[in-house]
Design a protein around this nucleic acid. Structure first.
Lengths: 215, 215
DNA sequence: CAAAAAATAGGGCATATGTCGTATATCGAA
DNA sequence: TTCGATATACGACATATGCCCTATTTTTTG
């Protein structure tokens, strides 16, 4: 039995979706929510769920933000955006947020069902017009610059050096060797780097540094 | 009547595709070719064609190059890649070359037919696993730039899941939590991942995986 | 169906890592 | 010239990690 949740601020549309799914007796709609934060509350109690059908435009917490949070906390739950709109920005943001598919609400019951099943099998659900838009997005990398957050991060030049070594996957001792420092010093530098970047591990540090074009 | 051409260096497969399409009497296979340059010759005589089903790996002129040329000369003709392989590089190159869809040869007649119709209606034909790969390509624009060394690396789907968690900078225990596994299992998965990727730390694993478009 | 691959789980051990101390020297800016 | 930031260095401790081992169950595949 496939455990589904529906999130949509329009209760009529929730009903319509439920009705479409009612044809298939291996699908159980476990719960529905009118916005993202309502969903998150329910997931906190019970996240025994296979897939969420998620609207995008919702009050309080929209579908994109909700997807990001759910994917981070409960990566086993698949998410299909199910929305009336298909503009490029929504699609791209949904994909970046981790959506496993993107369908339009006008979809027929059979295609919706197949989309759900295929998504649970590791594929992605997409109707052809959306698929075409993703292809166009891929052809135009201009559109996919990551709008990196620009908080002030100022590392000293020595810290950047250490970070560059870190990014190569080297250990404290090897880095110390390379930079002619004692391992203690390298450790201290890394401690300071972590504090500045507000992270707690090598990987996070390297990733954050990359996002900020520090390395 | 939809006018189709098939390009494939394997005449058995051409026959198989023709047979799949024979169920649908609004489709006419106008001609077939065994490679890209044969197709181009035929198109010079007559390019009154709606859509081409194109193999990728062919002698003389492969499917990617052919797609590029056809799209340039005859932009009204839609092209669906129909191939046995679905590695990221092929997919990305095909999309860049202008393909309007990407299907696998194992496809059933009905889905093939629907893919053709949807493509001719301005959509894109894609089976779900391909769609998922395009989503991943969109999420990791970095990888689009460097289609690197292509040693065979085959991770199981569970291993990829673990790797994705690793890439977020999570610890063994947190990953275990997220994936509902015991920490021992996560460790074992990571051990196996390291062996397959021939690396010895989280960072190296994540980096190598990224370069190979695994995550 | 049998064999192979994948997924699960645990034990043990040496080393690495993250985090807290402390401490000294240098240098540029307030 | 004193202060703050930087660079250097060491100690200690809990936890994480990398790597070795074994073992059962499930899934895939020939």
């Amino acid at each position: 039995m496939l455990k589904i949740a529906i999130v949509d601020d329009n209760s009529f549309l929730i009903h319509a979706i439920k009705e479409k799914l009612s044809f298939f007796d291996d699908i159980a709609v476990k719960h529905t929510s009118l916005n993202g934060s309502e969903l998150l509350t329910k997931l906190q109690e019970n996240h025994n769920l296979d897939l969420i059908l998620m609207d995008i435009e919702m009050p309080v917490l929209n579908g994109i933000e909700t997807t990001q949070i759910v994917k981070q906390k409960y990566p086993h739950i698949k998410i299909i955006m199910l929305t009336a709109f298909d503009n490029d920005e929504h699609i791209f943001n949904a994909i970046k947020a981790g959506a496993d598919g993107y369908l339009l609400k006008e979809i027929n019951p059979k295609d919706l069902y197949e989309g759900i099943v295929e998504t649970l099998n590791g594929g992605a659900a997409m109707n052809p017009s959306i698929a075409m838009k993703t292809l166009k997005l891929l052809r135009n990398p201009i559109n996919i610059q990551n709008p990196r957050d620009q908080e002030e991060i100022s590392l000293s030049s020595r810290e950047v050096e250490v970070l560059e070594q870190l990014s190569k996957g080297l250990s404290y001792t090897v880095i110390a060797d390379h930079l002619f420092l004692s391992p203690s010093t390298v450790r201290k530098h890394i401690e300071n780097i972590y504090k500045k970047l507000q992270v707690h591990s090598k990987i996070e540090a390297v990733q954050k540094a990359r996002n900020h074009n520090i390395i």
